[in-house]
Write a protein that binds this DNA or RNA. Structure first.
Lengths: 236, 236
DNA sequence: GACTCAATATGTTATAAAACATAAATCTAG
DNA sequence: CTAGATTTATGTTTTATAACATATTGAGTC
C-alpha cells in the first residue's frame, strides 16, 4: 500500500487542528497562518528545544507526546510538564521573551507546527480572543504548577506516584479498553515526573501491583482500581 | 500634625502608580479605570482572599506586602508567592476564570486597588499592550514557579533556606543600610516559604548566624556575606 | 508587675527516602 | 545469535529531616 494513503489513515494533523488558534481567527488571519508556518517531524528521544535556547517561533504539538523537564542539582531531572496534542510547546519562554528554562524531548513521534514570532505578535495585536486563549492557558498552567509544587514537596512517595499516574491519565487518557494508560514511560521518566529515585518508582509500582491497584507489563500500566489510587494520592 | 499631611508624606499610592496598567493605557482608558475602581486598605494578618473564592475584580497591590500560600496535606502551608508593589494579586485565578487555589494574607499594611471584571475585559479587548503585559507576567511567574518546584524538591535544607533569603532580597530589597532584608517574616513563614518545619528554619538560621553569613535580631535579618549565601544556595 | 499566650530556641528520637549494591531481564548492534 | 548496554528489580545501609519534647524568651493584657 502506498505510504501516502497510510499517512492519511493515521490522520496526519494540520495546523487547522490547533483549536486554540484556529477557532478564534478570522479567515484572513487563518490564511496568513496557513501560508507562514512550517511543519517538523520528530522521532522518539529527539530534542525539540533545550534549556538556554531562545525561541523565535511559537510551537504547536499537532500529534505525539512530549516531556518537558528541568535538570536538577544532584543530576536528577524534574519533569515539569507532559504535553499532549493539541497544545503549545515551549510557549512560556516564547511569551516571557526569554530563554527556555527547561528542555523538551519526544516521548512519542511528533508533528510540530512552527509559527514565526512576527506572525504571532500580529495575531496578538489584532485578535484579542487569541490573546485571551494564551492568557487562560498560562494562568491554568501556573495553577497546575503551584499545585504540583505542594504535592511534590509534601506528599509521601506512594501519594506522589499515585497522583502522577492519575495526572497522566487526565492528560493522555486510556486506551480503548478503558484501563490501559495511553502513555508508555520508562521507570526513570515516571520517577522524574514524581520527584523520586528510579529505584523507588520501581519499588512503589511493585507494591501497587501487589495491592491489585494496577498491573504492569513492561511500560504498559493498567489502572485496576482508580478509587484506591485516588485514595492513596489524597492521603499523601 | 494633621493626619492628612502625614499620609501624603508616606506617599499614599494611587492606581496611577500601577505601571503595568497605567503605562499602556490611552487617556480615555485611564479615565475609565480612574472612575471605575475602588480602593481598600488592609492591616497585618488580614485575609485578602481565600482558596475557593472566585474573584470578580483584578487586584493591584499599591503598597504593602502579601503572602500567597496553599494549605498542604499534613497541615503545613506552602507559601507560593511573596507579592510586592506594584504587582497584581490573585490575578492567576482571575484570568483562569476559576476559583483561587491559594489564599492571600497581609504581611505589611496594604493598599489594594480593585478593577471590576467588565472593565478589565474591556481593556484586554481594546488594548493589546495591556494583554501583552498580562501574558508576560503570567509567563514569568510560571517560569519562577517551575524553578522553585525543582529547588524546593531537590535542594537540601541549607540550600532551600539560603535561596529563600536571596529570593526575598530580590523581591523586597534591602533597607537603606544595604544589608538589612526589607521584609520581616516569622520563622514559621520563612519555613513555609522554604518547605521545611519551623524548627528546622530556626535551627538553620542559627547555623547561618554562627557561620557569619547573616545576623538575626528577632525578625530582622541582615545578610553579611551574600557570596557565601549564594554558594550555599547553589550547592543545594 | 504578674500572667498568658505565642514565638523562638535547642536537644533527642524516629523514619522516609536516598544511596549503594547486585542481579535479572530486556533491548540493541554487530 | 551472541555480547554489551540499558532497563528493571530487589535487598541493605545510611542519612536528611520530620516529629517530638522541653525550655526560654518576648509581647500583649488585665
Amino acid at each position: 500500500m502506498p505510504r501516502r494513503i497510510d499517512n492519511n489513515f493515521n490522520a496526519e494533523p494540520t495546523i487547522k487542528d490547533i483549536s486554540q488558534i484556529y477557532d478564534v481567527l478570522t479567515d484572513e488571519e487563518k490564511e496568513k497562518v496557513l501560508n507562514n508556518h512550517s511543519v517538523k517531524h520528530f522521532k522518539k528521544n529527539d530534542v525539540i528545544y533545550q534549556e538556554g535556547e531562545t525561541p523565535d517561533s511559537l510551537l504547536c504539538l499537532g500529534s505525539g507526546k512530549v516531556k518537558v523537564y528541568k535538570v536538577g542539582f544532584g543530576g536528577r531531572d524534574q519533569i515539569v510538564r507532559m504535553a499532549n496534542p493539541t497544545s503549545f510547546i515551549g510557549y512560556r519562554a516564547f511569551f516571557a521573551e526569554g530563554p527556555h528554562v527547561a528542555s523538551a524531548v519526544v516521548i512519542e513521534p511528533c508533528t510540530i507546527f512552527y509559527i514565526p514570532k512576527a506572525i504571532v505578535y500580529e495575531l496578538l495585536e489584532r485578535n484579542h480572543q487569541f490573546s485571551l486563549n494564551i492568557i487562560r492557558s498560562l494562568a491554568q498552567e501556573l495553577g497546575f504548577s503551584r499545585y504540583r509544587t505542594v504535592t511534590l514537596t509534601q506528599k509521601h512517595i506512594r501519594g506522589r506516584l499515585a497522583e502522577s499516574l492519575l495526572v497522566l491519565k487526565d492528560i493522555y487518557g486510556f486506551e480503548d479498553d478503558g484501563i490501559t494508560l495511553n502513555v508508555y514511560l520508562s521507570r526513570e521518566d515516571l520517577a522524574n515526573f514524581s520527584n523520586m529515585t528510579t529505584s523507588n518508582a520501581i519499588r512503589t509500582l511493585s507494591t501497587f501491583v501487589n495491592e491489585n491497584v494496577i498491573t504492569v507489563d513492561g511500560r504498559i500500566i493498567r489502572i485496576l482500581d482508580q478509587e484506591t489510587l485516588e485514595k492513596i494520592s489524597k492521603l499523601g
